[in-house]
Amino acid sequence: MKDFSKELSYRTSRSSGAGGQNVNKVETSVTVLWNVNGSEFFTEDEKVLIQNKLKNRINAEGLMFLTVSESRTQLMNKNKAVEKIIEIVNKALIIPKKRLATKPSKGQKQKRLDNKKKLSDKKENRRFKF
């Protein structure tokens, strides 16, 4: 897992929604900004992979935004935002293995046909015969 938290910058704002006395005074919502193109932590291939997989989260300037306002404190929201953005980027770097097509074995085919035959016989026995 790559930790690129040194390249992140932060913005704070007031959280939306119900809150009480503090909600209109304290800026607890944290927005994390990360410049994907300007990152020195990742190789060019990794940057291309990140941009392709996270294209919905990256704007035209190459900045990735993530806003967190789950907690009541700015520090906890900042920590959660850093964890989330690192997790999202690391998941984007995973290349899934290609699936190899396999065929069912003779035993599996025979078992399936036997079960079909049993069910067919059972239903045949339920029929009313003249």
Results as ranks from 00 to 15, higher is better:
residue 2 K to N: 15
residue 2 K to F: 11
residue 3 D to S: 07
residue 4 F to K: 05
residue 5 S to C: 05
residue 5 S to V: 04
residue 6 K to F: 06
residue 7 E to W: 03
residue 8 L to K: 00
residue 8 L to M: 13
residue 8 L to E: 03
residue 8 L to F: 04
residue 8 L to A: 02
residue 10 Y to R: 07
residue 11 R to K: 14
residue 11 R to N: 13
residue 12 T to F: 13
residue 13 S to T: 09
residue 14 R to D: 01
residue 16 S to L: 07
residue 16 S to I: 04
residue 17 G to Y: 11
residue 18 A to C: 07
residue 20 G to V: 12
residue 21 Q to I: 12
residue 21 Q to A: 15
residue 24 N to M: 01
residue 25 K to F: 10
residue 25 K to Q: 14
residue 27 E to N: 15
residue 28 T to E: 01
residue 28 T to N: 14
residue 29 S to D: 01
residue 30 V to G: 04
residue 30 V to T: 02
residue 30 V to Y: 00
residue 35 N to M: 03
residue 35 N to T: 05
residue 37 N to D: 14
residue 37 N to P: 01
residue 40 E to P: 00
residue 41 F to S: 02
residue 42 F to W: 08
residue 44 E to F: 05
residue 44 E to R: 05
residue 47 K to C: 06
residue 48 V to K: 14
residue 49 L to Y: 00
residue 51 Q to C: 11
residue 52 N to W: 02
residue 53 K to T: 09
residue 57 R to S: 13
residue 58 I to H: 07
residue 58 I to L: 09
residue 59 N to C: 10
residue 59 N to F: 12
residue 60 A to M: 09
residue 61 E to A: 15
residue 62 G to Q: 10
residue 62 G to A: 06
residue 65 F to D: 07
residue 67 T to K: 15
residue 67 T to G: 03
residue 70 E to F: 06
residue 71 S to C: 09
residue 72 R to E: 02
residue 72 R to G: 06
residue 73 T to Q: 07
residue 74 Q to I: 10
residue 75 L to C: 02
residue 76 M to E: 15
residue 76 M to W: 01
residue 76 M to V: 12
residue 77 N to D: 03
residue 78 K to N: 01
residue 78 K to Q: 11
residue 79 N to R: 15
residue 80 K to S: 10
residue 82 V to N: 01
residue 82 V to L: 04
residue 83 E to T: 09
residue 83 E to L: 09
residue 85 I to C: 09
residue 85 I to Q: 04
residue 86 I to G: 05
residue 87 E to H: 11
residue 88 I to G: 03
residue 88 I to P: 01
residue 89 V to T: 15
residue 90 N to Q: 05
residue 90 N to A: 06
residue 91 K to D: 14
residue 91 K to Y: 10
residue 93 L to R: 04
residue 96 P to H: 06
residue 97 K to L: 09
residue 97 K to G: 02
residue 99 R to P: 01
residue 103 K to F: 05
residue 103 K to V: 08
residue 104 P to T: 07
residue 105 S to A: 11
residue 106 K to I: 10
residue 110 Q to H: 07
residue 111 K to C: 00
residue 111 K to W: 02
residue 112 R to Y: 08
residue 113 L to R: 08
residue 113 L to C: 00
residue 114 D to Y: 05
residue 118 K to C: 00
residue 119 L to E: 13
residue 119 L to G: 05
residue 120 S to T: 03
residue 120 S to L: 09
residue 120 S to P: 00
residue 121 D to K: 12
residue 122 K to N: 06
residue 122 K to S: 06
residue 123 K to R: 11
residue 123 K to Y: 08
residue 124 E to F: 08
residue 124 E to M: 09
residue 128 F to V: 11
residue 128 F to T: 15
